[in-house]
Amino acid sequence: MPPQRPRFRMSQRSPGLAPLAWAALVALAAALVPAPAGRAAPADGPTLAKEDTMHTDVSTVLVRAPRVTLEEILDRVARGEARRDSMLRDQSFTATLRVMRDSEGKKGPILFAESVSRVYKKKPDMLRTIELRQYEERPDKDGNHDEVDADFSPGMGEEIVNFAFRPDNRKNFRFSIEDRKLLGDHLVYTLAFEPRSALAVFEPSGRVWVDTKDFVIVRQEIEFRQSPVPLFLKDIKHMVVERERAGEFWVLSRVLIRMELTIPIPKFGRAFDFAMAMSDYTLNSGLPDSLFAGQGKRGHSKVRVGAGRKGS
Protein backbone atom coordinates (compact mmCIF):
# COMPACT_ATOMS: atom_id res chain seq x y z
CA MET A 1 0.00 0.00 0.00
CA PRO A 2 1.56 3.31 -0.92
CA PRO A 3 1.94 5.68 1.97
CA GLN A 4 -0.71 8.30 2.15
CA ARG A 5 0.29 11.85 1.62
CA PRO A 6 0.23 13.86 4.79
CA ARG A 7 -2.58 16.34 4.80
CA PHE A 8 -0.54 19.33 5.95
CA ARG A 9 -0.72 22.42 3.87
CA MET A 10 1.75 25.22 3.58
CA SER A 11 0.21 28.44 4.67
CA GLN A 12 0.55 31.34 2.34
CA ARG A 13 0.20 33.64 5.34
CA SER A 14 3.75 32.85 6.56
CA PRO A 15 5.92 34.53 4.00
CA GLY A 16 8.92 34.73 6.40
CA LEU A 17 9.47 30.97 6.40
CA ALA A 18 11.34 29.50 3.50
CA PRO A 19 9.89 26.45 1.76
CA LEU A 20 12.91 24.46 2.93
CA ALA A 21 12.17 25.15 6.58
CA TRP A 22 8.55 24.17 6.06
CA ALA A 23 9.70 20.92 4.55
CA ALA A 24 11.87 20.31 7.61
CA LEU A 25 8.95 20.93 9.93
CA VAL A 26 6.77 18.58 7.99
CA ALA A 27 9.39 15.86 8.06
CA LEU A 28 9.96 16.37 11.80
CA ALA A 29 6.26 16.19 12.52
CA ALA A 30 6.02 13.06 10.47
CA ALA A 31 8.79 11.50 12.48
CA LEU A 32 7.39 12.57 15.87
CA VAL A 33 3.78 11.44 15.44
CA PRO A 34 3.66 7.73 16.22
CA ALA A 35 1.60 5.39 14.11
CA PRO A 36 -0.64 2.97 16.00
CA ALA A 37 0.92 -0.46 15.80
CA GLY A 38 -0.90 -3.24 14.08
CA ARG A 39 -3.54 -0.98 12.70
CA ALA A 40 -4.06 0.70 9.40
CA ALA A 41 -3.08 4.33 9.46
CA PRO A 42 -6.02 6.66 9.89
CA ALA A 43 -7.14 8.25 6.77
CA ASP A 44 -6.38 11.79 7.87
CA GLY A 45 -3.05 11.32 9.75
CA PRO A 46 0.59 10.67 8.83
CA THR A 47 1.77 7.11 8.47
CA LEU A 48 5.11 5.55 9.22
CA ALA A 49 6.54 3.25 6.63
CA LYS A 50 8.27 0.13 7.87
CA GLU A 51 10.87 -1.50 5.69
CA ASP A 52 10.61 -5.24 6.15
CA THR A 53 12.17 -6.57 3.01
CA MET A 54 15.83 -5.91 3.77
CA HIS A 55 17.74 -7.90 6.40
CA THR A 56 21.34 -7.90 7.43
CA ASP A 57 23.40 -9.81 9.96
CA VAL A 58 26.62 -8.55 11.44
CA SER A 59 28.79 -11.41 12.56
CA THR A 60 30.30 -11.40 16.04
CA VAL A 61 33.75 -9.87 16.11
CA LEU A 62 36.13 -11.50 18.54
CA VAL A 63 38.37 -8.83 20.05
CA ARG A 64 41.73 -10.25 20.92
CA ALA A 65 43.32 -7.04 22.22
CA PRO A 66 44.13 -7.29 25.94
CA ARG A 67 41.82 -5.41 28.26
CA VAL A 68 43.56 -2.60 30.08
CA THR A 69 44.70 -3.90 33.46
CA LEU A 70 44.00 -2.32 36.80
CA GLU A 71 47.71 -1.72 37.29
CA GLU A 72 47.84 0.10 33.99
CA ILE A 73 44.87 2.24 34.94
CA LEU A 74 46.51 3.12 38.25
CA ASP A 75 49.77 4.00 36.50
CA ARG A 76 47.94 6.17 34.01
CA VAL A 77 45.89 7.89 36.71
CA ALA A 78 49.10 8.73 38.57
CA ARG A 79 50.60 10.03 35.33
CA GLY A 80 47.40 11.86 34.40
CA GLU A 81 47.25 13.58 37.76
CA ALA A 82 50.94 14.47 37.58
CA ARG A 83 50.46 15.82 34.06
CA ARG A 84 47.47 17.87 35.18
CA ASP A 85 49.54 19.28 38.02
CA SER A 86 52.49 20.07 35.76
CA MET A 87 50.31 21.95 33.28
CA LEU A 88 48.92 24.31 35.88
CA ARG A 89 51.03 27.44 36.25
CA ASP A 90 48.68 29.59 38.26
CA GLN A 91 45.14 29.52 39.47
CA SER A 92 42.66 31.58 41.42
CA PHE A 93 39.36 30.55 42.90
CA THR A 94 36.80 31.51 45.48
CA ALA A 95 36.94 29.21 48.48
CA THR A 96 34.06 28.79 50.86
CA LEU A 97 34.52 26.97 54.13
CA ARG A 98 31.41 26.17 56.03
CA VAL A 99 30.58 24.42 59.28
CA MET A 100 26.97 23.42 59.80
CA ARG A 101 25.75 22.27 63.20
CA ASP A 102 22.86 19.99 64.11
CA SER A 103 23.08 18.34 60.72
CA GLU A 104 20.61 15.67 61.64
CA GLY A 105 18.38 17.80 63.84
CA LYS A 106 14.74 18.55 63.11
CA LYS A 107 15.57 21.91 61.53
CA GLY A 108 18.27 20.43 59.35
CA PRO A 109 21.81 21.76 59.10
CA ILE A 110 22.20 25.22 60.67
CA LEU A 111 25.02 27.49 59.58
CA PHE A 112 27.54 27.75 62.41
CA ALA A 113 30.42 29.43 60.68
CA GLU A 114 31.38 30.39 57.16
CA SER A 115 34.45 31.89 55.60
CA VAL A 116 34.74 33.03 51.99
CA SER A 117 38.12 33.86 50.48
CA ARG A 118 39.63 34.50 47.10
CA VAL A 119 42.77 32.44 46.71
CA TYR A 120 45.57 33.13 44.22
CA LYS A 121 48.31 30.58 43.61
CA LYS A 122 51.28 30.65 41.34
CA LYS A 123 54.09 28.19 40.92
CA PRO A 124 56.47 27.46 42.45
CA ASP A 125 55.10 28.50 45.83
CA MET A 126 53.34 31.84 45.69
CA LEU A 127 50.08 32.21 47.49
CA ARG A 128 47.75 35.04 48.40
CA THR A 129 44.48 34.71 50.23
CA ILE A 130 42.01 37.58 50.46
CA GLU A 131 39.28 37.12 52.98
CA LEU A 132 35.94 38.22 51.55
CA ARG A 133 33.51 37.31 54.28
CA GLN A 134 33.45 35.81 57.74
CA TYR A 135 30.30 34.69 59.47
CA GLU A 136 29.85 33.15 62.87
CA GLU A 137 26.62 32.22 64.50
CA ARG A 138 28.03 33.23 67.87
CA PRO A 139 30.97 35.58 67.43
CA ASP A 140 33.25 36.56 70.30
CA LYS A 141 32.31 39.68 72.17
CA ASP A 142 35.46 41.39 70.96
CA GLY A 143 34.60 40.58 67.35
CA ASN A 144 37.32 38.00 66.79
CA HIS A 145 36.56 35.44 64.09
CA ASP A 146 38.28 32.29 65.14
CA GLU A 147 35.80 29.56 64.33
CA VAL A 148 36.80 28.78 60.75
CA ASP A 149 40.24 29.74 59.63
CA ALA A 150 41.80 28.50 56.44
CA ASP A 151 45.38 28.61 55.26
CA PHE A 152 45.85 27.19 51.80
CA SER A 153 48.84 25.38 50.44
CA PRO A 154 50.63 26.96 47.47
CA GLY A 155 50.58 23.56 45.74
CA MET A 156 47.99 22.70 43.09
CA GLY A 157 48.32 18.92 43.35
CA GLU A 158 44.94 18.38 45.08
CA GLU A 159 46.20 15.59 47.30
CA ILE A 160 42.77 15.18 48.87
CA VAL A 161 41.58 13.86 45.51
CA ASN A 162 44.47 11.64 44.51
CA PHE A 163 46.14 10.60 47.80
CA ALA A 164 45.51 6.90 47.20
CA PHE A 165 46.95 7.07 43.67
CA ARG A 166 50.19 8.83 44.49
CA PRO A 167 53.12 6.54 43.69
CA ASP A 168 54.50 6.73 47.23
CA ASN A 169 51.14 5.89 48.78
CA ARG A 170 49.68 3.41 46.31
CA LYS A 171 51.23 0.41 48.01
CA ASN A 172 49.14 1.15 51.09
CA PHE A 173 45.85 0.59 49.27
CA ARG A 174 44.17 -2.28 47.52
CA PHE A 175 42.27 -1.37 44.33
CA SER A 176 39.59 -3.07 42.29
CA ILE A 177 37.50 -2.19 39.26
CA GLU A 178 33.89 -1.78 40.32
CA ASP A 179 32.22 -0.51 37.16
CA ARG A 180 32.79 0.80 33.65
CA LYS A 181 30.56 3.20 31.80
CA LEU A 182 30.82 4.37 28.23
CA LEU A 183 29.63 7.95 27.89
CA GLY A 184 30.11 9.01 24.30
CA ASP A 185 33.82 8.83 23.73
CA HIS A 186 34.58 8.86 27.47
CA LEU A 187 35.10 5.60 29.31
CA VAL A 188 34.56 6.20 33.01
CA TYR A 189 35.95 3.61 35.40
CA THR A 190 34.73 3.33 38.97
CA LEU A 191 37.60 2.07 41.09
CA ALA A 192 37.21 0.95 44.67
CA PHE A 193 40.08 1.27 47.11
CA GLU A 194 40.66 0.23 50.68
CA PRO A 195 43.65 0.15 53.03
CA ARG A 196 45.86 -2.84 52.43
CA SER A 197 46.49 -3.18 56.14
CA ALA A 198 43.65 -4.79 58.08
CA LEU A 199 44.97 -2.99 61.15
CA ALA A 200 44.28 0.38 59.52
CA VAL A 201 40.51 0.21 59.98
CA PHE A 202 40.45 3.96 60.55
CA GLU A 203 42.06 4.84 57.22
CA PRO A 204 39.91 5.96 54.30
CA SER A 205 38.46 3.61 51.77
CA GLY A 206 36.01 4.39 49.03
CA ARG A 207 35.57 4.69 45.32
CA VAL A 208 36.76 7.05 42.64
CA TRP A 209 35.42 7.82 39.19
CA VAL A 210 38.17 8.10 36.61
CA ASP A 211 37.68 9.54 33.15
CA THR A 212 40.05 7.44 31.09
CA LYS A 213 40.17 9.98 28.28
CA ASP A 214 42.51 12.15 30.33
CA PHE A 215 42.99 9.70 33.22
CA VAL A 216 41.83 12.22 35.78
CA ILE A 217 39.72 11.62 38.84
CA VAL A 218 36.37 13.35 38.54
CA ARG A 219 34.79 12.29 41.83
CA GLN A 220 35.57 10.45 45.01
CA GLU A 221 33.42 9.05 47.79
CA ILE A 222 35.23 8.19 50.98
CA GLU A 223 34.20 6.11 53.92
CA PHE A 224 35.81 4.98 57.14
CA ARG A 225 35.23 1.54 58.64
CA GLN A 226 35.96 2.99 62.07
CA SER A 227 36.54 6.49 63.31
CA PRO A 228 40.20 7.61 63.47
CA VAL A 229 39.53 9.23 66.86
CA PRO A 230 36.73 7.20 68.45
CA LEU A 231 37.08 8.97 71.79
CA PHE A 232 35.79 12.23 70.28
CA LEU A 233 34.51 11.37 66.83
CA LYS A 234 31.96 8.60 66.75
CA ASP A 235 31.62 8.31 63.01
CA ILE A 236 32.43 9.93 59.69
CA LYS A 237 29.14 9.21 58.01
CA HIS A 238 29.72 10.48 54.52
CA MET A 239 32.52 12.19 52.67
CA VAL A 240 32.46 13.29 49.07
CA VAL A 241 35.20 14.94 47.05
CA GLU A 242 34.06 16.43 43.76
CA ARG A 243 35.83 17.93 40.81
CA GLU A 244 34.40 20.00 38.00
CA ARG A 245 35.71 20.97 34.65
CA ALA A 246 37.24 24.42 34.35
CA GLY A 247 38.36 24.86 30.76
CA GLU A 248 40.52 21.89 29.89
CA PHE A 249 41.24 20.93 33.51
CA TRP A 250 39.33 19.07 36.15
CA VAL A 251 39.67 21.02 39.41
CA LEU A 252 38.60 20.42 42.98
CA SER A 253 35.15 21.88 43.46
CA ARG A 254 33.75 20.50 46.70
CA VAL A 255 34.66 18.52 49.78
CA LEU A 256 31.69 17.63 51.94
CA ILE A 257 31.90 15.68 55.19
CA ARG A 258 29.28 14.73 57.73
CA MET A 259 30.61 13.70 61.10
CA GLU A 260 29.10 12.67 64.38
CA LEU A 261 30.65 13.46 67.73
CA THR A 262 30.82 10.93 70.52
CA ILE A 263 29.46 13.41 73.04
CA PRO A 264 27.12 16.18 71.92
CA ILE A 265 28.39 19.71 72.46
CA PRO A 266 25.89 22.18 73.95
CA LYS A 267 24.57 24.64 71.34
CA PHE A 268 26.33 22.70 68.62
CA GLY A 269 24.81 19.25 68.64
CA ARG A 270 26.23 15.87 67.84
CA ALA A 271 26.26 15.66 64.05
CA PHE A 272 27.89 18.40 62.03
CA ASP A 273 28.92 19.04 58.45
CA PHE A 274 32.10 20.50 57.11
CA ALA A 275 32.03 21.81 53.57
CA MET A 276 34.72 23.32 51.43
CA ALA A 277 33.67 24.63 48.03
CA MET A 278 35.92 26.08 45.35
CA SER A 279 34.33 28.04 42.52
CA ASP A 280 35.00 30.72 39.90
CA TYR A 281 38.28 29.23 38.81
CA THR A 282 40.67 31.00 36.53
CA LEU A 283 43.57 28.89 35.37
CA ASN A 284 46.86 29.81 33.75
CA SER A 285 45.80 33.42 33.39
CA GLY A 286 49.32 34.74 33.97
CA LEU A 287 48.92 36.15 37.47
CA PRO A 288 51.57 38.84 38.01
CA ASP A 289 54.21 38.33 40.69
CA SER A 290 53.28 41.73 42.11
CA LEU A 291 50.01 40.22 43.30
CA PHE A 292 52.00 38.14 45.76
CA ALA A 293 54.71 40.65 46.65
CA GLY A 294 55.79 40.41 50.25
CA GLN A 295 53.72 37.35 51.00
CA GLY A 296 56.70 35.05 51.47
CA LYS A 297 56.60 31.28 51.21
CA ARG A 298 53.96 29.30 52.94
CA GLY A 299 54.83 25.67 52.97
CA HIS A 300 51.87 24.24 54.79
CA SER A 301 48.22 23.57 54.43
CA LYS A 302 45.96 23.97 57.40
CA VAL A 303 42.30 24.23 58.03
CA ARG A 304 41.55 25.04 61.61
CA VAL A 305 38.09 24.70 62.99
CA GLY A 306 37.80 25.68 66.58
CA ALA A 307 35.98 27.63 69.17
CA GLY A 308 36.87 30.09 71.84
CA ARG A 309 39.58 32.66 72.09
CA LYS A 310 43.19 32.24 71.22
CA GLY A 311 45.74 33.47 73.69
CA SER A 312 46.94 36.28 71.54
Binding site: T96, P109, E114, V116, R118, R133, R254, L256, D273
Partner: peptide
Protein backbone atom coordinates in the same frame (compact mmCIF):
# COMPACT_ATOMS: atom_id res chain seq x y z
CA UNK B 1 23.83 17.15 52.38
CA UNK B 2 20.93 19.57 52.03
CA UNK B 3 21.72 23.20 52.79
CA UNK B 4 25.36 22.34 53.58
CA UNK B 5 25.89 21.91 49.85
CA UNK B 6 24.11 25.13 48.86
CA UNK B 7 26.17 27.53 46.75
CA UNK B 8 27.66 30.53 48.48
CA UNK B 9 25.75 33.80 48.48
CA UNK B 10 27.90 35.98 46.27
CA UNK B 11 26.34 39.31 47.27
CA UNK B 12 29.03 41.78 48.25
CA UNK B 13 31.94 39.51 47.40
Amino acid sequence: FGSTAAPVDTAGL
